[in-house]
Nucleic acid binder design. Structure first.
Lengths: 362, 362
DNA sequence: TGCAGGAACCGTAACGGTTCAGTAGGCCGG
DNA sequence: CCGGCCTACTGAACCGTTACGGTTCCTGCA
């Protein structure tokens, strides 16, 4: 009985001697037929091994897939490796759950240009999470005649958008460090473009960055530091393609090697900051006495080690994106959700003068 | 132009004066038509705003959805909160990625019996991860005429299966504790059945457990301890429905309150163990001097705090499940993957005699 | 000149449903 | 006896595509 099931709504109807409509109604509109007949239909279905209306055929007819697609810049598995991404996913999953919708993770290898996965996705809409502006997958999503919500991206056409004020958020951090007295800093950032570059990022590269969030943060930092008379050209920025603690370590090493005079490292993510923390301490320098280190995101691991960082509500971000997508707004009017961030003063940033104090006494 | 897109493969064909087949071929089989015509098709498609073949209609025709469904016992969002689940997901995502397949997370609220989400899922197969034996969602999956792989479940009909030797694994831990000299232990376990029960779990409840893994582990523990003459009836087992650190804390509290004489707490998961660790220390008892605590899973957080636990390869589990599902085996012969586990001797389990030693000297 | 063979394209039949405008019959009030 | 309404069910159109098995036309070669 379990070998093959050519049972279909039509064959079931034939077996019962009723119309297909009636069988369909038995499943979808119980009030449209007598209880006895309905029972008979369902019983026969069980007997014949009919698993109920085929979801794909139904989707075709109803134009509803019952799922939202998630497109992110990284390998699928990355979504589960980065705590910030996991937080976002959790929020998105919550929103989907509330709406009874599925969540389809779309495989989009950033190194390849294979857009087929986007075309193949049977979804009612897309959530696009922090992909580069020129990503072909994003373009493919825009072509699809379904709504989309972008997250941590510049606003596109008339799409709904979710994000934070990246500029304001990181400026708060910059001002915090400036207030502490730091003048010589270095920056660690995530990938700026689809083309791999592990090393210093020139100002030009920063300006041409296609990863919106990273670009925004660097621009804001430049503004903050130029505002107090520091030449941004002279501020070393080291970029890493992979977003891992190991990347943070090697980037920090590179930075400290070439710019030993800096008193603080600002990272555009907590993961990088955690790596920087490791590397710095491995080199025998104390944090924050010898070097201040700051992150961005506010992931649990960061809070545990007392990282000074900017907390952004990743879960809320995901939830907001899901909600925006699932309860469609007015046609012409794109919506925007901008979430609040919060400076978390941990124990990894202090005044650089404390160094002198250690040497020469207070 | 972006308002409505009634453009379809048929309308495009009509516009071009070619057959639908040809348009279809332009997308799917470029070698079946001349490059010029193909270009003309694609150009016209762009002009008309035709987004390419509809994925749902394609799925219906080809009988391929290009996605695998994941069913788990918990709220969707739970999958992202539990590190072990995240590890599993990462592995599963890797396998999906390799096969160019999507991963559809199916919302299956464990408290409700709403099975529609399973019926609605347009997928080529299911991965079922640790749901209770009597879960209606599981039943719904079995009805669907697509392959399924179960994980951490008893083998079903002729489904592929992935798991570990839970019995052997936890016995190793039990023997480790016994070897250290522990005779009076308490156990913290995860939910045993769909019906909520936060408190002591009687032997009968243990035997009737519908969560296969938990049952297996408890049974194995009973065997291990009865083998050295301990009456399992006398061993306190405390169950928690929610799988959180807070649950671990309250369960440990309950256990220590009613059974202050125990020298070790064995937990069936690291999360519970981390909670137990907190609670124990908050009560002013030292670990492992005053009390030994063991976990199960080997999550990162556990390793960080030096928990004595059993490591199981969650990522490999997910990957194996995905692979099994994606490269279909022989029809009649269900496959089974059984992964290895490993005892991790951390710093949270020690000989109970060290207590006496502390009091009376060595 | 005849013909084999391949390249390029086409027509039809599914794929498995949902939906909507009916229709037949029963019941009821007038 | 008639008109109207309700219940229970039906028929046919439609959703948008791909699989299958052709047909047509052109080229090259004997």
């Amino acid at each position: 009985m379990n070998v093959r099931r050519p049972a279909t709504l039509a064959s079931l109807a034939a077996e019962l001697g009723v119309s297909r409509t009636t069988v369909s109604n038995a499943y979808n509109r119980p009030d449209q037929l007598s209880p006895e007949l309905r029972k008979r239909v369902l019983d026969t279905a069980r007997r014949l091994g009919y698993p109920g209306p085929d979801p794909v055929a139904r989707s075709l007819r109803t134009r509803k897939a019952g799922a939202v697609g998630l497109l992110l810049t990284e390998n699928l598995s990355y979504a589960f490796r980065d705590p910030a991404a996991v937080g976002f996913l959790e929020g998105l999953a919550l929103a989907c759950e509330d709406a009874g919708s599925g969540l389809l993770l779309i495989p989009a290898n950033p190194e390849r240009e294979d857009v087929a996965s986007v075309h193949r996705a049977g979804v009612d809409g897309f959530v696009v999470y922090s992909v580069p502006d020129d990503d072909p997958h994003l373009a493919a999503v825009l072509e699809r005649p379904v709504p989309a919500v972008v997250c941590d991206q510049p606003s596109i056409e008339n799409l709904d958008r979710v994000g934070i004020d990246d500029s304001r958020a990181i400026k708060t951090m910059a001002e915090h460090l400036i207030g502490l007295g730091h003048r010589k800093i270095g920056v660690l950032c995530m990938r700026l473009a689809r083309a791999r570059n592990d090393g210093p990022a020139s100002v030009q590269r920063q300006e041409n960055a296609s990863f919106h969030v990273q670009k925004k943060r660097l621009t804001a930092l430049a503004e903050a530091f130029e505002a107090i008379g520091i030449d941004w050209e002279q501020v070393p920025v080291v970029e890493r393609f992979d977003h891992t603690i190991a990347s943070g370590e090697s980037a920090a090493g590179q930075l400290l090697e070439s710019n030993p005079e800096i008193t603080a490292i600002m990272c555009t993510s907590d993961i990088l900051a955690l790596g920087a923390l490791n590397e710095t301490r491995n080199r025998g320098r104390r944090v924050p006495e010898d070097l201040s280190i700051t992150g961005f995101d506010g992931i649990t691991e960061a809070e545990r080690v007392g990282l000074t960082t900017v907390r952004q509500p990743m879960l809320e971000k995901g939830r907001a994106a899901g909600r925006l997508l699932l309860d469609a707004g007015e046609p012409g009017r794109p919506r925007e959700v901008r979430l609040d961030t919060q400076l978390v003063t941990g124990s990894t940033a202090a005044s650089p003068r404390s160094v002198e104090e250690r040497w020469f006494g207070p």
